[in-house]
């Protein structure tokens, strides 16, 4: 059986596990748990009433948190010409066309987000086997296939997060760091929940948001009461 750490077990004793707490209290609880030796990421998990096997109930996209997520992400851009210059100016880690496609195909994946201009997608498509399993394949749905590379690069660099519903109908996303104030975290969480609520597929039946849980990297989860 999995062994839990002393800190985890202590944290577990501080609250009623199955009782949903109002958002502020839940955030306060997560912040109140003993901290690890680094600035932990605060995460949200939402269990949704959708069937992920059905394509018309698939929820995926990208979201920019109003208060950021407290970390800069490395972005590469598949583009050439003026768009490549614009991407470089916006602060992309690497910019290139077929040469960059070859580099990634050879196994270089030390970046968080890949953005491509539509014209390059015929080459980038060949990277499916490398980027697909890591969830880094550019798609128009998540805003990573776009001609406006400047905006895309700056947004994703600042912490725009891609999300998609997993096989258990859950959506995961980081909402900030433990060092954030409760107000900032609340703003991020509320914005994300609203975004997911707005993305409700028409085919979804029954309760849409079944459960919301907040946790930090090394803490237990705290149930959040959602109206």
């Amino acid at each position: 059986m999995r062994r839990r750490s002393k800190r985890y077990n202590e944290a577990f004793g501080k609250y009623e596990r199955n009782t949903p707490l109002p958002l502020d209290e839940a955030l306060g609880m997560v912040k109140q748990f003993d901290a690890a030796k680094f600035d932990e990421t605060v995460e949200i998990v939402m269990c949704l009433g959708v069937d992920p096997k059905k394509s018309d109930q698939m929820i995926r996209g990208a979201f920019s948190f109003p208060k950021g997520i407290g970390q800069e992400r490395s972005v590469i851009v598949f583009a050439d010409g003026d768009q490549a210059d614009a991407a470089k100016a916006a602060g992309a880690l690497e910019v290139g066309g077929e040469d960059l496609v070859k580099k990634v195909a050879d196994g270089w994946t030390e970046f968080d987000v890949a953005i491509a201009v539509p014209r390059m997608m015929r080459f980038v498509g060949k990277l499916g086997k490398v980027l697909g399993p890591q969830g880094k394949m550019p798609t128009p749905k998540s805003g990573t296939v776009t001609d406006d590379v400047t905006t895309a690069v700056s947004e994703f660099k600042a912490g725009k997060v891609e999300f998609r519903v997993d096989s258990g109908a859950n959506v995961h996303a980081p909402v900030g760091k433990k060092s954030f104030s409760v107000e900032d975290l609340r703003a991020n969480v509320e914005a994300f929940i609203e975004h997911i609520r707005a993305a409700k597929p028409t085919a979804a039946k029954g309760t849409y948001i079944k459960k919301v849980v907040l946790s930090s990297t090394m803490s237990p989860g705290v149930l959040v009461a959602v109206a």
């Binding site: 096997k53 394509s55 698939m58 995926r60 539509p118 014209r119 997608m121 498509g125 499916g128 086997k129 697909g132 399993p133 394949m137 798609t139 128009p140 749905k141 296939v145």
Partner: peptide, 23 residues
């Protein structure tokens, strides 16, 4: 036409991923 093709490619990629294409 390119915009439509990019959409089509993304839809196919998604189907491919969901059906275990990479495994």
């Amino acid at each position: 036409a390119l915009a439509a093709l990019v959409e089509r490619q993304a839809a196919l990629q998604e189907r491919y991923t969901d059906a275990g294409g990479y495994q």
